[in-house]
Design a binder for these strands. Structure first.
Length: 271
DNA sequence: AGTCGCGCCTGGCGGC
DNA sequence: TGCCGCCAGGCGCGAC
């Protein structure tokens, strides 16, 4: 489920409950996440003060003053919630008990997400492999243009390639291309520097709008039954195959590109 | 070297 | 009502 805006909203939701607190214990109900939770390191992060909670791409990191960190990725179905209750739900896999008597709970139906402890200075390789997300300073038109100017891949799959630009998921890839009037089939080598800039601008605009929409649900994080701060911005093309284009009224279509659905308007997004 | 498809999981939905 | 097949918003990795 989570795209970058959901991850950012989740981070904002849990952050006030974590910073300057400590984890007093960690209960592992199922460690078999995408990468197994490394239980043997869990003592390393107990009783050390949480210095900072941050997000990069779709990863949330929690840094401790003793030089260790925890990275959390929500995968397709993951969510975090803060709760004082000790009754847990199906798919609550990792429970961090805080000094404030709250619990930080990682729930993930499909277990495509991960929770992983590492030494801060060593970094976490999956996160380090990511390119900048659209909000980071390195994500300039020149950077993107140089990355893709020789690429035969479609711009749709380029937007999903996190080593180039991170944080864009399947929904927003379609939305960004619609916004910029670029065909999802257009190849990297045919995308101009101007279009690279339009893509980055549209990415920030669309992601920001979604983050703002999610901000209103922050109170829900402190609640045992809380749904994740789940929201959906007004989507122009995603999941709207057969419905009229909001710009030209022609019928939107769905195609499959590298095994993922792409939605677009054949009229507004010509090659 | 660059690109693509598979597969990790569970659950929901539509069709029969 | 049940079973079956298909679908899902992520993403790394092996194969080509």
């Amino acid at each position: 489920m989570p795209e970058l805006p959901e991850v950012e909203t989740t981070k904002q939701g849990v952050k006030p409950y974590l910073e300057n607190q400590t984890f007093e214990s960690i209960k592992v109900r199922n460690k078999n996440l995408r990468i197994p939770f490394n239980t043997k390191l869990k003592d390393k992060i107990l009783d050390s003060k949480i210095k900072q909670v941050s997000r990069r791409a779709k990863y949330i990191t929690i840094d401790f003053t003793n030089g260790f960190s925890v990275v959390i990725h929500l995968g397709m179905t993951g969510n975090l919630r803060v709760s004082k209750q000790s009754r847990f739900l199906k798919h609550d896999h990792i429970i961090f008990s805080l000094s404030s008597a709250n619990n930080l709970i990682f729930n993930d139906v499909r277990r495509f997400g991960l929770v992983y402890i590492y030494r801060t200075k060593d970094g976490f390789y999956l996160l380090d492999n990511n390119g900048p997300d659209p909000f980071e300073q390195e994500a300039t038109r020149t950077y993107l243009f140089n990355k893709i100017r020789k690429s035969n891949a479609s711009i749709k799959s380029i937007l999903l390639n996190h080593t180039i630009i991170s944080g864009i998921g399947n929904i927003y890839a379609s939305e960004i291309l619609f916004k910029t009037n670029i065909s999802p089939f257009k190849e990297g080598k045919d995308i101009s520097e101007y279009e690279c800039n339009e893509i980055l601008k549209a990415s920030r605009m669309i992601l920001n709008k979604a983050i703002k929409a999610g901000g209103t649900t922050l109170n829900d994080y402190f609640n045992a039954d809380a749904k994740p701060g789940y929201f959906k911005i007004q989507l122009n093309v995603y999941d709207r195959a057969g419905q009229p284009c909001k710009t030209c009224n022609s019928e939107l279509v769905r195609v499959v590109q590298s095994n993922r659905s792409t939605y677009f308007c054949k009229i507004c997004q010509k090659i």
